[in-house]
Design a protein around this nucleic acid. Structure first.
Lengths: 187, 187
DNA sequence: CGCGCCCTGTACCAATCAGTACAATTGTAC
DNA sequence: GTACAATTGTACTGATTGGTACAGGGCGCG
């Protein structure tokens, strides 16, 4: 019956949004089918592994986005202060000022974490290491850089949780601003 | 067939642990029945409203615990620095140094949030207000106190997420220590 | 024009879901 | 001891779950 989507690449963002809004367990195949406009046949054609493979593909896509837009810029040589501001801007844009949830963080809290153990850990480890490396190049000692990087990630994730809980986007924006400011004072 | 548990009060902690480990949607009635040792008959006898009522009861119990062990001590007059240390200790004990998840935070990220909107928001709002009030009594101006309180909650929730993601309890402990230190420097 | 391969909708599957009904059994009050 | 009510296991419901099978239709290549 013809083709609607060239490759599975175009479907992944729709999958991601479905997982974000309904959770991994909550996103049943019927809602996935509805959101993507694809029947079960197509879904299992693109993702023979079922929901498991869909989840892995979504996590991989998220990781790829952050790798290109956040991690790589952090690793590149350049003004550390500008890099921090750029990271803040990219994160704020990605999470739509708190209106969007971090799927990786949600997976980490949920039990689904045990289904994608490597991908969840690697995402945060890569972020932390890239940020810590940049701070080191800015003159921060290794242990302090690592702690500051972890702290920054904690603030992003915590701000997303509290922002959703209080239903107040301002909480996320203010949290990100504090994160940026704290990183700046280290340099 | 006799009675096994006097009132439903004794069941709630078991329910909470089941929700924490499996998530709200993931905790099916069969696993709940297994974890609590109660058949469906008993469960629906104690909670006629089904899972919805179980979730509400668990949230209420968590709120009651924090109200007694964390919020009330914060509201009570006393040395602010000692109050902060006590809060840190209570939180660390409750979350078992990061091995336990914050169910309210998990609900906030998940879509289940929409089923218990008031309870999730009230829990965090009560915590924030109690902490901010204590800081004000310690001499911190109202806006700064509120911001610092929000920041502390962010750090707790973020530390829980990152701790689970990296599977490293040290992340939670270190995050809590930073939270305590930052509050201290305000006083 | 025709062949063949990918794509896709539909029907179907066993398993499990939350929830209901009810009869059996127990503890308790008298 | 007896009656009553609360408690509980079991069987059952209809709906939905993730996943499979397959036949048919559309497109590219020759």
């Amino acid at each position: 019956m013809g083709k609607a989507v060239g490759d599975r690449g175009g479907v992944v963002p729709l999958l991601a949004e479905a997982f974000r809004e309904c959770g991994f367990e909550g996103a049943s195949l019927s809602v996935i089918s509805q959101r993507t406009g694809l029947g079960k046949g197509s879904l299992y054609n693109f993702f023979p592994g079922g929901k498991e493979e869909m989840g892995a593909a979504v996590l991989a896509a998220i990781d790829a986005w952050f790798e290109a837009e956040v991690f790589a810029p952090l690793r590149a040589a350049g003004d550390p202060r500008a890099a921090i501001t750029a990271m803040r801007a990219a994160v704020d844009a990605y999470f739509r000022s708190g209106r969007r949830v971090c799927l990786v963080g949600a997976f980490a809290l949920d039990n689904v974490r045990e289904r994608f153990p490597g991908q969840v850990r690697d995402y945060f480890a890569a972020w932390r290491d890239a940020l810590a490396g940049m701070l080191e190049r800015g003159g921060v000692a290794a242990p302090e850089a690592r702690e500051a990087a972890e702290d920054a990630l904690i603030q992003v994730q915590g701000a997303l949780v509290l922002c959703r809980a209080l239903d107040d986007p301002e909480v996320f924006t203010a949290g990100l601003a504090r994160m940026e400011q704290r990183l700046m004072t280290l340099l």
